[in-house]
Amino acid sequence: MAWKYLYWEDVEEGQELPTVTMNITCTTVIAGAIASRDFTPVHHDRDFVQKAGLKDILLNNATICGFVGKYLTDWTGPEGELKEISFRISTPCFPGDTMTKTGKVVKKYTGGDQHLVDVEYEFAVPQGRNCGGTGTIALPTRGH
């Protein structure tokens, strides 16, 4: 398989990341919870959450972390190196939701010998913003 590589030289501040949609199912929520070893009932037990007054089970924070990582390195290709991510969770993501991921480059700079970009992203669900935040990624350069 041929992988695409995003080079630092080819990125501009203000550039938008691709919009990506993803259908969230019960399986997505539960597979994410179990793969991240999070057995909290709100992420797999519908009876439990409905008794607690919630509509349905909800995506756990580790799965959102995983989706952020995937969204960013799907954009950069495998040579993009995540340095940090930070986000705020505003509204839950439930099974049946379509999640729409958008983002843009807010800063392009060098730090030490690294070529870095800061991005902002937002994952939206029908009921509002599931999460929004920032990330820093080191990119390869054409010279190397």
Binding site: M1, W3, M22, T28, A31, G32, I34, A35, S36, T63, G66, F67, G69, K70, T73, D74, P78
Partner: peptide, 9 residues
């Protein structure tokens, strides 16, 4: 698998 992340690394 859960995150649908195909990063070959």
């Amino acid at each position: 698998e859960a995150m649908q992340d195909g990063n070959p690394l």
